[in-house]
Computed example of a mutant assay.
Amino acid sequence: MTEKLYVLGHPVGHSKSPAMYNAVYEKAGLNWHYGLMDLPTAAEAEAFLAARDFLSINITTPYKPQALAAADSQAASARLAHGANVLVNANGALIAYNTDGQGCVAYLEGAGVSFRGKSVVVCGTGPTSLSILHAVAQAGPAEVILVGRSKDRARDVLRIYVDELGALVGRTVDMPAFKEGHLSFAELYDRVNFKYGSYDTSRQAIAGADIIIDATPLGMNEGDGAPFDPALLSARQTVFDVVYGHGETALAHAARAAGCAFLDGAGMLVGQAVVTVGILRDITGEEALGMPEDELFSLMAAAAGFDLAR
C-alpha cells in the first residue's frame, strides 16, 4: 500500500517539498508518495485534517493553527509556537510538531552564523516567528527581540510564550537542547533576555541587532515592502528572510545593498525537512530513513534545485 504524504496550505504551487521528500523516499526504497494539498479555505483544510487520510503532512501558511488544533498530542515545539508545521499519523492519532525553528537555526549555524551572546531580532508574531524565536533562544543569544506591526500584539504574544515556557519548565523534567552547546528549556528561561516592540518603536534595537530574522510572509506577493525601514541596516549585520522562490524580496534587496550577509528561506526549508524525516523515522521505525543529516540535506537541496553547499 502506498503511504500518502502532503504539504497543506494555500498557495503551495511553488513548493519544493514534493521534490525533496520524494527524492528521500525513493532513495530509501519506500512506497511513499508526497504531493500538494492546496486548499483555498479553512473549512476545506479542516475537513482534510479531520479525515486523517495521510501518514504525515507538512503545513504552511495559513493553516498551522488549524493543524495544531486537529492534533491529539502536541510536542512542546508546536505548543509554544501555537501552530504545527508537521502532523504525523501514528496509528490514527495525530502528533503535532513545529520544525521551523530548529530547521532555521540548524541551517544558519551550518552556514557559519553564531547566535552565542548575540542580539537577535525576530520579525513577526505568528507560529513561524515563535518557533524560530524559541530555537534561536536555545542557541544561546544574549537577547531576542520580537517585533511586529503592533507593539501591543508583540507584547501579548511574547508574554504568552514566556509564561507557557515557564509552565513547561516548572512542571516537567528539563527538556534538553537538540544540539550540543545549546541551552535546555530551563537554561534559556533563566538566561535569555526577551524583549518586544514594533517596527516603529524598535528602530534602535533593529539597527543594533547582530542578526535579523524576518519570519513574516512579506515578499510572497508582488509589491510587498520590507517589514521595517531598510535604512536601519548596516554591513555588520546578518539578515535572514524565510521567504524563498518569489524573486528578490524588498528586504533581500536592501540587505545586499547595505552590505549585510544575507540568506533566504531555501536553506530553512531543507533544514526543517531534515528534522521532519528524523521524526518520521522515529515514529514509523523505518530504518531506511536513518541517513546522516548532512547526506539528507545535500540530497534534498539538490532535488529542490538549491545551491546550498555546507
Rank of each mutant, 00 (worst) to 15 (best):
N221Y: 12
E248W: 14
G112V: 06
V7N: 07
P18W: 14
L80N: 00
G247M: 03
V88Y: 15
T238S: 05
K27L: 08
I283F: 02
A42S: 15
P141D: 05
N98Y: 11
I95H: 14
S202D: 12
A23C: 07
A23D: 01
A71R: 10
R149Q: 07
A69F: 14
G110K: 01
A255D: 04
A106Y: 03
G29H: 04
D294N: 08
D307W: 12
L232K: 00
S56K: 09
V147Y: 08
L280C: 06
T2Y: 14
Y34R: 10
E248C: 09
H134W: 14
S114T: 04
R52W: 10
T238V: 07
T249I: 08
G103C: 06
A69Q: 10
R191G: 03
T276E: 10
P127H: 13
E109Y: 14
F262H: 01
E164Y: 05
A301C: 04
G197E: 00
G9K: 00
A226G: 05
L108H: 04
S129R: 02
F54D: 03
P18I: 10
K151V: 12
L251T: 11
A51S: 13
M220P: 03
P11L: 09
D100H: 03
K151N: 12
L108V: 00
A231G: 13
L87F: 07
